[in-house]
């Protein structure tokens, strides 16, 4: 019995998707890179003696040597340690904010698409209102009000990023809900909630995965943007954004590149690879796309 189940339970839609994704070389490489990076920021502090906080007296702004792999910053902290710990923060901010956006946006889009009428009016106009404000300004104000911390940065980015999810879910739902199997579910007596979450949502997910990956990349960028302006994750906690912040000083920018080039490089590489994964997912999930 169990054997039968195991052999047949694979959904070949997802199997096909995985196969197509694996043929997408750039996306596969990006996935590999991101996996290694995430493992590194999680495991390196356990394996190595990393200390991102101690200010080593007398070792201010030192160029890389055998003791400090990537040198020290202007108050004498180890740049490599800060890069690893900053990665933890930046990547977490990316995923948590994107998750928050998805958790808010997807149900709202689902409601708007399923019920239509007044509910759609209210939700979609709310989306329009949110989208018409320049996100960066609102984020600056909100962070100032809430006080800068990793949590408030995640909250602020997540709260302003849901509109994309809501719109995408809405547009997908209005087409899926007209499918005959949804009417069949209604004819079988399925409640509205069951129709939405068991029939409509699972069939609307594909583009949302893509949206999620782009959303992670965008949140990481927004965090570094806020940190660069001094309103992101506050020091002494490290994040890639506030490491780049040090490049605001002209002498650092020109004479002490070890303080900001590694953080900038890894940030760009991470965001790029997440975007490539999103591209790969989009192509893999498109049934008409033959790779």
């Amino acid at each position: 019995m169990d054997k039968i189940k195991k052999e047949n339970v694979q959904n070949s839609f997802w199997r096909n998707t995985v196969q197509k994704f694996m043929k997408h070389r750039v996306a596969m490489f990006s996935l590999l890179f991101l996996t290694v990076e995430i493992l590194a920021v999680i495991l390196l502090p356990l394996l190595m003696d990393l200390d991102p906080y101690t200010t080593n007296a007398g070792c201010f702004s030192m160029a890389p040597d055998e003791r400090f792999l990537l040198g020290t910053d202007d108050v004498g902290r180890d740049v490599f340690s800060r890069l690893v710990y900053g990665g933890r923060v930046s990547i977490m901010v990316g995923f948590v904010s994107a998750l928050l956006s998805a958790v808010i946006g997807i149900p709202l889009g689902l409601l708007a698409g399923y019920y239509g009428g007044v509910i759609r009016m209210v939700i979609m106009r709310l989306v329009d209102i949110f989208m018409s404000f320049p996100a960066m300004i609102i984020q600056l104000v909100l962070v100032t009000v809430l006080g800068a911390s990793a949590a408030s940065v995640m909250l602020v980015i997540g709260l302003l990023g849901w509109t994309g999810f809501a719109r995408l879910t809405y547009s997908k739902v209005i087409s899926v809900k007209e499918q005959e199997y949804v009417e069949a579910a209604r004819a079988s007596g399925a409640t509205n909630l069951r129709q939405m979450f068991q029939y409509i949502l699972p069939n609307s997910l594909a583009p949302l995965f893509v949206q999620f990956s782009f959303s992670v990349a965008s949140a990481i960028l927004q965090e570094s943007g806020l940190s660069f302006l001094g309103l992101g994750v506050p020091v002494p906690t490290a994040s890639w954004g506030n490491m780049i912040y040090s490049a605001q000083s002209l002498s650092t920018l020109v004479y002490r590149p070890w303080m900001w080039v590694p953080a900038g490089t890894i940030l760009v590489a991470t965001v790029l690879s997440i975007n490539f994964i999103g591209d790969g997912l989009r192509d893999a999930l498109d049934p008409k796309m033959k790779l």
Partner: peptide, 14 residues
């Protein structure tokens, strides 16, 4: 209950 015309679209693919 109801049986629909098109058996290709009246079953949830997921």
């Amino acid at each position: 209950q109801m049986v629909f015309q098109n058996p290709y679209s009246s079953l949830n693919p997921r």
